[in-house]
Write a protein that binds this DNA or RNA. Structure first.
Lengths: 335, 335
DNA sequence: GTGAAAGCGCTAACAG
DNA sequence: CTGTTAGCGCTTTCAC
């Protein structure tokens, strides 16, 4: 069976081979100065000749800090989340940090389990991408933390990065209105995630600003952000005979499911009903009815999250507690 | 600034609080026996009262093994990969292991960088999901390793888990043939990944078995597995005037791009040209022309990978060097 | 059933 | 510029 057959070298081995002390080896590895160019050369040669790689576990124990940054994400299978996760991991890597991506499937007990592990391995910081739970985990309270796409109930001293969801909601409602809709429904995520909440608020504000009354019976929600959940839900809605000529879905997957349900019931999109989504994922472009949607700048969100968490770890002053990223309207064929 | 304000307790603190030795605390934590029920109770109380979580870094240093398992994946933004990664992470978690998901973007230097990090943190095993590089990293050679969806050039003593790509290729070609196609093209990934290779071999075999000659001018490839790359390529192909009435794409994204290119040039699918993909990702179901495709069982692949790597780590005998997972035909509207 | 003590590989005083 | 050494938090003999 595959086994580590050659036990790996330690810094002691290297120091012997190089004929210097471990301290010196450590210094050249960490480029801490106080060694001659000559020594450096010899040590570096030995290191690469022997394929030596420093034991980060030992280093972590000694220095009491690691390069680990936990990234908690509800569903990496969802393109929106995976895009920002990838962006975060890549940015962090370039700064010498490693992103530990933890997929929770929105399950709070799994989330807690991961937080314990992350804590155990002494992570230096934590990034939450969306999610719906309040952090009760006492031990995490004192860690540099950034939240993407959802504000925690108790912010503490952490940072929130969000799209301008409110404007996004307004844009969506406005687009529908301009396209002639007067009975504008909304399908959103049932859980009170701040981002979905804000989108909905923007939508509502815009409706009322346009002189349309907010119709409570046209507010739908699903327990799970998925194509299937949305489709099922909207099929039900239509069964019940509720009529609307436009609908804002707080997520592209919800919009995609909605479009499917509408088609299945013979409703033409955008002829009979117009729909607007949120995110601008790839699938929304490739759909049978390419989706009009509100685009979020995932790359920027990820990069900023990485930059800010590093600043926090370094003890730099963060001068904001919230960073809002602009969104934009992408007009396609469902409006 | 957010800072770890309360330094975390160590096993020494706990031992003092509980009035026992560190050895005893360690024993109850690890359930190593040799302590009384009474002691256990007291220690466990202190632990949970104080929210103590053992320092896994120190433990890792002492025991010279960690619960880390590296998972190298080319593009987690791709649904196929993210599905298996999630499955792996979840299975590993249930066995007390932690999956370190590393997204390489197919960039070999990033891959190498991650391998060094993983090595540095003393991972216990390694899982490669697809990818196109040969592992030159000497240090990784002796580690339990499983490959999913691609066989390495030098297998060594590792394990390969693959779909039955050959049969999949045959099914695809056969489906096209049965649907009446006689000029069957193939679009595949340019790099010599074993999985794509096998799919192509199956396709070719089936064509010849059916009495169709293999037409070299109908074999296309792209440098990148993506919707856009496929679309661009197929637009070019049609520009050049090559004619075909069926096409097997070795990936759903390639198929989706192909369908888009065909539509853009006024070709009807499946009327003028029929197409078959591979993977059965969600988008292929939601596409304007829902794709006929070969379904891979990602969940099973992920679960088996996790199970097997754990066996390897435990030194159990692995009695196969290759595990093949069945695929199945999903007939939809492009044939 | 319990404790004392060595030591994992590394860094960081400190001494020279 | 270089070396010696204590000790990070834990597990694990070994002795009682």
């Amino acid at each position: 069976m595959p086994k580590r057959e050659k036990k790996s070298l330690s810094i002691v081995d290297i120091s012997k081979l190089a004929g210097v002390s471990v301290a010196t080896v450590s210094r050249v590895i960490n480029k801490n100065g106080r060694f001659s160019a000559e020594t450096q050369k010899r040590v570096e040669e030995i290191i690469s000749e022997n394929n030596y790689v420093p034991n980060l576990v030992a280093k972590g124990l000694k220095t009491k800090k690691t390069n680990f940054i936990g990234v908690i994400v509800p569903d990496i299978t969802n393109e929106f989340f995976s895009m920002v996760a990838v962006e975060i991991q890549n940015s962090l890597r370039q700064h010498g940090y490693f992103a530990l991506i933890c997929n929770t499937r929105e399950d709070i007990s799994i989330e807690r389990e991961y937080l314990d592990i992350l804590n155990g391995i002494q992570m230096s910081g934590l990034i939450f991408i969306s999610g719906n739970t309040r952090i009760e985990n006492e031990s995490v309270r004192f860690l540099p933390t950034v939240y993407i796409d959802r504000a925690p109930e108790y912010l503490g001293k952490s940072l929130v990065i969000e799209s301008d969801n409110y404007s996004g909601g307004r844009m969506a409602a406005n687009t529908l209105f301009e396209a002639g809709c007067r009975n504008i429904a909304c399908l959103r995520y049932a859980k009170n995630i701040s981002s979905h909440q804000r989108r909905h608020e923007g939508y509502r504000y815009e409706l009322e600003a346009r002189g349309l009354s907010f119709n409570a019976s046209l507010q739908f929600s699903v327990d799970e952000v998925s194509y299937n959940a949305a489709k099922t839900k909207m099929l039900e809605v239509m069964e019940s005979g509720l009529a609307f000529d436009g609908i804002f879905c707080t997520t592209d997957w919800l919009a995609l499911g909605t479009v499917a349900a509408l088609s299945e019931r013979g409703k033409k999109v955008p002829g009979d009903v117009k729909v607007v989504g949120f995110d601008d994922i790839l699938s929304s472009r490739l759909s049978s009815s390419p989706l009009t949607t509100i685009r979020q700048q995932v790359d920027i969100m990820g990069r900023i999250a990485a930059d800010e968490i590093i600043k926090m770890i370094n003890g730099e002053n963060i001068d904001t507690s919230k960073i809002e990223i602009a969104v934009s309207l992408v007009k396609r064929q469902t409006t």
